[in-house]
Amino acid sequence: MDVFMKGLSKAKEGVVAAAEKTKQGVAEAAGKTKEGVLYVGSKTKEGVVHGVATVAEKTKEQVTNVGGAVVTGVTAVAQKTVEGAGSIAAATGFVKKDQLGKNEEGAPQEGILEDMPVDPDNEAYEMPSEEGYQDYEPEA
């Protein structure tokens, strides 16, 4: 019985440690998101679009440190934060509304985080759909 109880105690310690790591990862992701939003706020009209992409990228980098179902929630929060940063930029006159959601080359930025393969159960990952990809044929 002692062996059984000791095993359960060790398992509990492992769960607590994993929860603490997840909590730490979420806190880091939130900190990076805040950094990115402050970065966007300090940019001029020309830099705002690039700044919004930076927020998304920093958040995406930190999301990889967070495991399990938390990833889905962090990704949703990050996307809403990026959308909010863009709205703030438009409201303050840093950028025109028609410039939001495009990178410096004018290509749409939507789907940055949505296409990231995420499995809350950590069982399997699927690649994003290939609808947006084109076949590449090298020139002879």
Results as ranks from 00 to 15, higher is better:
26 V>C: 05
49 V>E: 07
86 G>P: 02
115 D>A: 09
32 K>M: 03
103 N>H: 15
64 T>A: 15
129 S>M: 10
129 S>Y: 09
16 V>W: 06
110 E>F: 07
5 M>S: 04
81 T>H: 02
128 P>F: 13
122 N>H: 08
78 A>K: 09
17 A>R: 15
82 V>W: 01
46 E>S: 06
42 S>E: 09
48 V>L: 08
2 D>W: 04
81 T>V: 12
93 G>L: 04
52 V>W: 09
58 K>W: 02
124 A>I: 04
86 G>E: 15
40 V>T: 02
105 E>Y: 08
55 V>Y: 02
90 A>L: 12
64 T>L: 09
48 V>T: 03
41 G>F: 13
61 E>W: 02
70 V>Y: 06
83 E>M: 11
5 M>N: 04
135 D>S: 11
125 Y>V: 11
116 M>W: 09
129 S>C: 05
119 D>L: 03
2 D>V: 03
107 A>M: 05
92 T>E: 06
72 T>P: 00
84 G>P: 03
48 V>A: 04
35 E>P: 02
49 V>N: 07
100 L>K: 02
92 T>R: 01
64 T>N: 05
134 Q>K: 15
8 L>C: 01
55 V>A: 09
97 K>V: 13
139 E>C: 11
138 P>D: 11
88 I>S: 05
95 V>N: 12
65 N>H: 11
31 G>T: 09
37 V>L: 07
139 E>W: 10
24 Q>A: 01
82 V>G: 03
88 I>W: 04
8 L>T: 00
115 D>F: 05
87 S>Y: 13
47 G>D: 03
92 T>V: 07
134 Q>W: 11
3 V>W: 04
123 E>V: 12
67 G>P: 06
43 K>Y: 14
35 E>N: 11
6 K>T: 03
96 K>S: 10
48 V>Q: 00
96 K>L: 10
117 P>S: 09
5 M>E: 01
51 G>S: 15
73 G>D: 05
8 L>Q: 00
82 V>K: 14
89 A>R: 10
57 E>A: 07
117 P>V: 14
87 S>H: 13
58 K>E: 04
71 V>A: 08
48 V>E: 00
106 G>P: 06
59 T>H: 01
2 D>C: 10
87 S>K: 06
136 Y>I: 01
129 S>I: 03
89 A>E: 03
2 D>L: 09
75 T>Y: 14
99 Q>M: 13
136 Y>A: 11
103 N>M: 11
94 F>P: 06
138 P>I: 02
78 A>E: 02
4 F>T: 00
46 E>A: 15
117 P>D: 10
39 Y>F: 13
49 V>A: 15
76 A>L: 13
44 T>W: 15
134 Q>S: 13
32 K>F: 15
73 G>L: 15
22 T>Q: 00
51 G>C: 13
125 Y>M: 02
43 K>E: 00
71 V>L: 14
91 A>V: 04
98 D>L: 12
140 A>F: 15
101 G>K: 15
125 Y>P: 15
124 A>M: 04
50 H>L: 15
89 A>G: 08
138 P>V: 14
52 V>D: 00
85 A>I: 15
98 D>N: 09
15 V>S: 00
75 T>I: 13
106 G>R: 01
63 V>K: 00
135 D>A: 02
81 T>S: 03
73 G>M: 01
70 V>W: 03
96 K>C: 12
130 E>R: 01
130 E>D: 04
25 G>K: 15
103 N>T: 13
129 S>D: 05
70 V>N: 02
134 Q>M: 05
18 A>C: 08
108 P>H: 05
122 N>R: 14
64 T>Q: 04
129 S>H: 13
106 G>D: 02
